[in-house]
Design a protein around this nucleic acid. Structure first.
Lengths: 126, 126
DNA sequence: TTGATACTTAACCATATGGTTAAATATAGA
DNA sequence: TCTATATTTAACCATATGGTTAAGTATCAA
């Protein structure tokens, strides 16, 4: 159907949306390794890990470099920056709305000495 | 095949891995709206938007609340926190490795007055 | 009660994703 | 040159995703 030309942000978030790939990044954060070494702790075939590496690579999070018959993989954290920026932006937005709600509640309480309760002494339904 | 019980982090990152859904969150950051209002700017059917909202809702990023025949949708930024924390962790790791590389290069340059070049005056191939 | 409005659910389709095994490729080493 | 090692590519499968249209449900309003 091809709805959008793969945008970088979607690729990065998509790459992070899998526990195996996050584990691979976790391992790679400790230092570079070969594909085989990387695949060893996982209960899946080597081709499966190789595919995950492919996803991480097209997202720009991993670089594979051929050294003899071994491929050394290393983390590239740069694409995480855009992702972090995006998240932080909306997180801040949301927190700002929370803050304004808190301010509103404080003001309401300041004006209504009963503690801000609406419908102060009325009957409650259950 | 069902490989893992949907973990929250994968759901959040998966929800963010689509431009339509990110646009929905962007709209919702400005304040709550109905589903119809939310769907209006998108070139897709209402059911499609409703499905996207479903994805965002199961990721905990959006809450839908029935008010009469209208559904008010609002952003919930809380799940973004875990996502931001995860990303920041690995970003820092990567930056730390960059820093230690930079330190290494500086040290190398300090010891080798030729500017840190290996193979100082030798022939270059190619 | 009847109809319009605001959605959601169902059924369907094409493509993507995540896995498998088997075969291909490239290089190191005997 | 032959063989073992490291990894990718190919072919395949089941399920997930992102979209569609059509039908269903709930509520407001005449």
């Amino acid at each position: 159907m091809v709805k959008y030309r793969h945008d970088p942000l979607s690729e990065v978030f998509g790459a992070l949306a899998d526990p195996t790939r996050r584990a691979i990044l976790a391992r790679l954060a400790l230092g570079e390794t070969s594909v085989g070494e990387l695949a060893e702790p996982f209960e899946m075939s080597l081709p499966a890990v190789s595919k995950h590496l492919g996803v991480l690579e097209t997202a720009g999070l991993v670089q594979r470099e051929k050294q003899g018959r071994v491929r050394r993989c290393q983390l590239d954290g740069r694409p995480l920056e855009a992702a972090a920026t995006w998240i932080e932006h909306y997180r801040r937005f949301w927190e700002a709305r929370l803050d304004s709600l808190a301010r509103y509640l404080e003001e309401t309480q300041a004006k209504q000495p009963n503690g801000g309760k609406k419908n102060g002494g009325g009957k409650r339904d259950r």
